[in-house]
Design a protein around this nucleic acid. Structure first.
Lengths: 220, 220
DNA sequence: TAGATTGTTAATCGATTAACAATC
DNA sequence: TAGATTGTTAATCGATTAACAATC
C-alpha cells in the first residue's frame, strides 16, 4: 500500500501561506463569535491588510471552500483551517520559566484553542517553585526529564533568562520535546532534531526605530 | 538644493533585508561582548541559520564594510548597523497596559539599546495606578493625551486586553504617537497615519501545532 | 437573467543564491 | 605569493497579483 489515498497528488504548500493561516483563523474566530455566517475574500483580506487574490490562492491549496456570490461559510472554514493546522488532536504544553512572560503565556496565550493543554510549569526560583500560577503548581527544573516524560509534553514554551536558554532548550530536546517556542534573546538554530518558532520581542522595537528614523527607503 | 548629497543614487532596500538587520545587530552585540574582533559572513550566517551570500548581499546595500581575508570588524559593523537602524537618536517609549507582558516589556525588552528611553507606564487598574513598576510610577489612562505630549512619546507598546486595543491605539495615534508595537490579539491595520509592528504570540503555537501534525508538506 | 465572487492560470514581482573577479 | 573572503552580477527560485472563465 502506498501513502496515497488522495487520487490527486498533494500540493506543496508555500511557507508564506502556512504562516498566514493562523491569522485567517483568528479573524474567523472573531467573525464566528459575532455570528457572521459568511465572509468573502475581499472583506477578509481587508481586515488583515491582504489582497483578495491572496486569500483565495492560499485557501485553494487545500481544496474548495467557497461559493461564488456567497464567499466562505465561517463555521465551515474555521473547521477546515483548524484541521489543516492540526488542531484536531491535543498538544501537551510546558512553560519553562515562569517570570512575567511565562506567566502571560500560561494565562492567556494557550487559550487560543482548546487543543492546547497546559500540563507543566517549570522554574528554578525558590519564590516560585511550589506556588500556584495559572491554577497550576510550579515544578523545579531539576526534575525536568521525568516531568516532561510523565506529562507527555509535545511543545515547550521557553521564557528563561538568555544565559541558560541554550542549555535548557537542549535538555528539553534530550527529554523528547520536538517543538519549542523561544521567547528568549538566544538564537536556537544550533539545536538538532527540533522545530523552533522564535518570538524575539526586541526585534520589533528596533524595526520601529528604523522606521521612525526614516533614513533608508524601502520598497512599497 | 536637491535632496542628493550622495552622488550615488540611494538604493531601495528590500523589506526582507531590513527585517534581518536587527538579528545581525543582536548577534554582533554578543560577539562584541566576547571581545571578538572580526567575523566573516559564513560564521555570522551560520549563527543565524543564513547563507553567507545572504549576509554579504544585505550589507552591500549600505556600502562596503568588510575586507577580504578578514571579514567584518565587529565594533565597526555594530556602529554601522546601529546607524542604519536609526539608533543614533533617542526614542521616548510608553508602555500601555502593565500586566505581565507590559511589565516584561518595561523591565527587559527596552534594555536592548540605550536609545530607548522608557518614559511612561499607563494602565487603568486601581491596583496598579500610582504603584512603581520597573522603577516608574504607573499613570492612569484617563490622562493619556497630556502624558503622551508632555513626555514626547515616539513609540507606544500596547499590551492591553483585546477588547480595548483598537480604541486605545486610536487614542495614542490621536495624541501624536506614530509608531506602535502591538502585543494584543487585535489587528490594527485599520489605523491610519501610524506604523504598526505586531507580535501576536498566539500565531507561534498554532504554527507549532501545524508542524507537529505534519499533515501538509511544505517547501524546503 | 445579470452580476458578484469564486478558483486558477499566467505574468509580474521580489528575494535568494551560485558563481566569480577583485582584493587583501 | 597563495588562498581565503569579499562585493556584485546574473540565474534561480518562490510569492504575489492581474486577469478571466466558471459558477452560483
Amino acid at each position: 500500500m502506498t501513502s496515497s489515498g488522495n487520487s490527486k497528488s498533494t500540493p506543496t504548500i508555500p511557507v508564506a501561506t502556512m504562516e498566514r493561516l493562523p491569522r485567517y483563523l483568528m479573524q474567523l474566530y472573531k467573525l464566528r463569535h459575532r455570528n457572521v455566517e459568511s465572509i468573502n475574500s475581499k472583506t477578509l483580506g481587508a481586515s488583515l491588510g491582504l489582497k483578495d487574490t491572496q486569500i483565495r490562492k492560499d485557501l485553494s491549496y487545500f481544496g474548495v471552500f467557497g461559493k461564488a456570490r456567497y464567499g466562505y461559510n465561517v463555521v465551515f472554514l474555521v473547521k477546515a483551517i483548524e484541521s489543516i493546522l492540526g488542531l484536531t488532536r491535543e498538544y501537551n504544553i510546558a512553560v519553562v520559566g515562569v517570570g512575567n512572560i511565562g506567566t502571560a503565556l500560561a494565562n492567556y496565550t494557550l487559550r487560543v484553542n482548546s487543543a492546547f493543554k497546559l500540563k507543566l510549569l517549570i522554574d528554578t526560583s525558590p519564590d516560585l517553585v511550589g506556588k500556584q500560577v495559572a491554577g497550576m503548581r510550579v515544578e523545579h527544573l531539576d526534575d525536568l526529564n521525568e516531568l516532561i516524560q510523565v506529562n507527555k509534553i509535545d511543545i515547550a514554551l521557553i521564557a528563561v533568562p538568555e544565559k541558560v536558554a541554550v542549555e535548557v532548550a537542549q535538555r528539553l530536546v534530550d527529554a523528547g520535546v520536538s517543538a519549542l517556542y523561544n521567547f528568549t534573546q538566544a538564537e536556537l538554530h544550533c539545536l538538532k532534531d527540533v522545530y523552533v518558532e522564535s518570538a524575539n520581542i526586541s526585534y520589533g522595537v528596533l524595526r520601529l526605530a528604523h522606521h521612525l528614523s526614516g533614513k533608508w527607503p524601502r520598497k512599497k
